[in-house]
Amino acid sequence: DALLPAPQNISILSTNMKHFLTWSPVIVQGATVRYSVEFQGEYEREYANESWIPISECSLSTATQCDITDDISASVAYKLRVRAQAGAASSQWGSLEGFFNRVTTALTPPVLKVTADGCHLLVELQDMGPALQFRVLFWRKGHESRVRQAVLSSGSAGAHLATMEDGAEYCVRAQTHARAIDRSSGFSPTQCVRAQGDTSVRLV
């Protein structure tokens, strides 16, 4: 029987298609407390006798969080639970309240750096993992009706967007797109640079 209290404050942190289960530590004087995490997808509930599947990387771990990204790889409702163990004693399972579906992940605009290399308009984007890509919009200032678009995969360090006309000013903004759930973030702030000779003058 359970001598340990079950973990409390169990919640999900999900940003940009990376999902973490977190909980408050269980304190036992003079003992090392370890935790084990299990998940249950809609399939397990409906077709596999409500079975639970352990996450081996988070079995008997002292950490109070678990990266569940690889196991939450379908857009269905998942249940998650965690229990504490210290020596031979173990707690009841503490469960996440409700379900988690990855379609609710928070998507943030990408961090981008726009530079002008002579007449070349270049953009660098922060790597945000394989599940995401970036939709980059760029236009010549004053020609807002002719916005062009490039779709870049995350991790493409730098991209050449366009060859600029001498002395012209070009602006860029971007959003993150999660392909598996077909959702996008808001746009990043617009950044503008001027062509011809400015190695990296950012006019905001």
Binding site: E42, Y43, E44, A48, D71, S73, S75, V76
Partner: peptide
């Protein structure tokens, strides 16, 4: 293997 089968099965539901 069981975790990957779960992923596939849940994706099949979608």
């Amino acid at each position: 293997v069981n975790r990957k089968i779960s992923s596939i099965a849940n994706s099949f539901l979608s």
